[in-house]
Write a protein that binds this DNA or RNA. Structure first.
Lengths: 244, 244
DNA sequence: ATTGGCACAATGGTCCAACCAATTAAACAG
DNA sequence: CTGTTTAATTGGTTGGACCATTGTGCCAAT
């Protein structure tokens, strides 16, 4: 490891320069997600680089999900961009098998417990009221549909992450959550998936409301444990089916 | 959400075809991380696409960290690649202020504890021997230089993450680690930064060697706590300096 | 025989100019 | 006003050329 002061990162490649310029442009124009970026040809002309270089830079942003390209239409911003962003490309080999899904839950186990602790430590009265509102919505949806609903469930957890005061929780867990649910909306024929986790949402909230970090961690762990259990049952179902 | 079995991935763009072919090639040749891939010109000729398309595909893999390109030398594999890899690129606004650094430690607190638990549960005798070797190297470096050394320290933790059996731990924590050390090689004049964490490396190892998940979690948490403490002292130093 | 420097080939990086394919919007016929 | 056709726009692809860096092997000086 080298002291960064002694080795100021040389900008080097042209791509980075293009992307930095693009960040500045987005900032100066106040562009938001959904807005259209200048065409590749315009950028090439304006930045005095070839269109190839512009395309290579945009390809990188596209791969990071920062930008979306539609042939014949244009290039559109998909998320906020800033200078000095830290990119963390997570790659899971064969993301749709049992082990990979369990891996995402192991990450969630560690992070959700920690987020619950911080939330319980830092929540203001307003925060708690907000979380409870999300909880009630989730519980109503549960009773209305006689089952867990991803949407409202996620909103509840989201409220906890945001109250933790650390934006990293939301982003990382959201990635895990998406990985998980990309293949498992009704995982492997387990109809009541998530059912078992229901009661722990309120017990978790109670601990947070009581500013009980230790209890909050315990309840969060129980909640994840039920999901892991559902996943195992799903895997067992799958094995049974494949035997038939 | 759609069941992937019902929506077989549409062949879509040429890039994906190139990357799929490349995965097969890597598999058939048995290439491992560090090995060199065919040159762009060869790939273009063999796959019957233009070199531009090959470059675009490789640019995407490079952005995901799967591959490294060295001008004048070649393109080298950096990690195992498989078909159906699941990519989840996160981009975080890179903060170098006190709060952002503390946020990375909060993530590490949750994940390192969890990784330690899984490591203690799953480590084979060979794994433990390997981890101990890394520990000894770190301890020797510590005594030789009279201080923590990032390199050997990281290797020790890395061995634990790898033994956990979940590749996500390494990837996520590595990102946190990089974010942290990008600005804090000798953080804010705290000369003995990391000193306090030293003894907990061995106590953590002892718990792992004894297959004691609960103890491993506790020691991992103590270790991170010392780093957090160092960070707070650094921030205090900074405030003192700015007053002068 | 070893070493140092030099020329040359190989490789990724950039550029250009054209054309293809999808989209969008304008022009047009009904 | 409506539906279709047409043209312009935009990202996607191609081929070829040249630049910048790296690695290698040759050769001369020591």
């Amino acid at each position: 490891m080298i002291n960064p002061i002694l080795s100021p990162v040389q900008t080097s490649s042209r791509d980075d320069a293009v992307l930095n310029a693009l960040v500045d442009f987005v900032a100066s124009e106040g562009l938001k997600p959904g807005d259209r970026l200048p065409t590749e040809r315009l950028l090439a002309e304006y930045l005095k680089v070839s269109r190839t270089t512009v395309r290579e830079a945009l390809t990188r942003w596209q791969e990071l999900g920062l930008v979306e390209r539609r042939q014949g239409s244009g290039t559109y911003l998909r998320s906020a961009v800033t200078r000095n962003m830290l990119h963390m490309p997570l790659t899971l080999p064969s993301g749709n098998d049992f082990n990979s899904l369990m891996h995402t839950l192991e990450i969630r186990r560690g992070l959700e417990a920690e987020a619950a602790v911080l939330c319980a430590e830092r929540a203001s009265d307003d925060d708690i009221a907000f979380i409870e509102k999300k909880l009630v919505v989730m519980e109503e949806a549960f009773h209305a549909r006689a089952g867990m609903s991803s949407e409202e469930d996620w909103d509840f957890h989201l409220a906890i992450f945001q109250t933790s005061g650390n934006p990293l929780f939301e982003q990382i867990i959201a990635a895990m959550y998406e990985m998980f649910h990309r293949f498992w909306e009704h995982p492997l024929g387990v109809r009541d998936f998530g059912h078992a986790s229901f009661p722990y949402h309120r017990t978790l909230f109670n601990c947070i409301a009581a500013r009980d970090p230790v209890g909050a961690r315990a309840e969060a762990l129980k909640l994840i444990a039920t999901v892991e259990d559902d996943l195992r049952r799903g895997a067992a179902n799958l094995r049974k089916q494949s035997k038939t």
